[in-house]
């Protein structure tokens, strides 16, 4: 394996943001000070035009991590080995520190539904997932990093809670985990469990990085929309998660109604204040933050 789990877990890259097309110009022209960027892997696969050229340029100046949505790791279809080979080629091209995807399935019988669909947390599903994660790690020659998804239903008769399922999976495969704090909050709200209790059950020695994001609240449920700032409850959970983990790389996702680069970056850097309550970082940002100026 190219990087061990310990290396991934131990590498705190700082505060990153998800690389989005609308920010390409600002990033290329102003080279803002950002600790790292997370790319959506599929945006740079099966294409040879501007996206890959822009990525080359950005990867020359910033640390990159990869985040995908189509590995379909939980599906009962055969693994898409061609997809995995291309994923690895992309990593070689951009020098990404790690490759992540979600604990979910995205399609069956050859179809891709392009959604992060929930798995039953049963012994059978766990066995299936363990086998698949091991196979993927053999192909990628590194620990795979997997994220807890937002879900809108749970299957009846589970054998495990989600943190138990994650622990079993991580222990059996040596995979890394991506702890999306917003997803924990959304699921806790949708499925009526205690989010803090969830965090206390997470196998922190496998957690490589955090995700933060905004979501939308409906009368009956919360939806993981990534269309706004992080809510106060999620910041509170992040503080707890930060303490429990001892500190990890942290990444803000913003995918809809995306504001300008500065606003996204400022939102991400609020994490510094929550990591260290004595931090004056927001004041520093405000003082030097003439819009778009490199920092």
């Amino acid at each position: 394996m190219t990087s061990s789990l310990a290396t991934l877990v131990g590498s705190d890259l700082g505060i990153g943001i998800g690389l989005r097309t609308t920010h390409y110009e600002t990033i290329l022209e102003e080279r803002p000070a950002v600790d790292f960027f997370e790319i959506l892997s599929e945006n740079y696969m099966h294409t040879g035009g501007r996206p890959v050229r822009v990525l080359d340029e950005i990867a020359a100046h910033y640390a990159i991590v990869m985040h995908g949505v189509s590995m379909n790791i939980g599906s009962t279809d055969p693994l898409d080995r061609d997809y995995l080979r291309q994923l690895k080629a992309l990593q070689q091209r951009c020098g990404a520190r790690w490759i992540s995807d979600h604990i979910c399935w995205t399609g069956v019988e050859g179809k891709n539904l392009h959604d992060l669909l929930p798995l039953p947390y049963t012994k059978g599903a766990l066995r299936h997932l363990i086998e698949r994660v091991r196979a993927v790690q053999d192909i990628l020659e590194q620990p795979l990093v997997l994220e807890n998804p937002s879900t809108y239903l749970q299957f009846a008769g589970p054998d495990y809670t989600e943190p138990e399922f994650l622990s079993e999976l991580a222990t059996a495969t040596g995979c890394g985990l991506l702890m999306d704090v917003n997803n924990v909050f959304v699921c806790a709200s949708n499925h009526d469990f205690d989010a803090e209790g969830y965090l206390r059950g997470v196998p922190w020695d496998h957690v490589v990085y955090f995700h933060l994001a905004g979501h939308t609240t409906y009368e009956t449920h919360r939806l993981d929309t990534h269309d706004g700032p992080v809510c106060d409850e999620v910041w509170d959970l992040y503080r707890i998660a930060h303490e429990l983990s001892g500190g990890r790389s942290t990444l803000l996702e913003w995918d809809a109604d995306i504001p300008d680069f500065q606003a996204v970056h400022d939102e991400a850097r609020k994490a510094l204040r929550h990591r260290d309550p004595k931090s004056t970082v927001t004041d520093v940002v405000a003082a030097s933050g003439s819009a778009g100026a490199p920092r």
Partner: peptide, 13 residues
């Protein structure tokens, strides 16, 4: 018993 994972996924899809 819980339905087989494949059956469950085909139904869900």
């Amino acid at each position: 018993s819980a339905p087989e994972l494949r059956l469950l996924q085909r139904w869900f899809a």
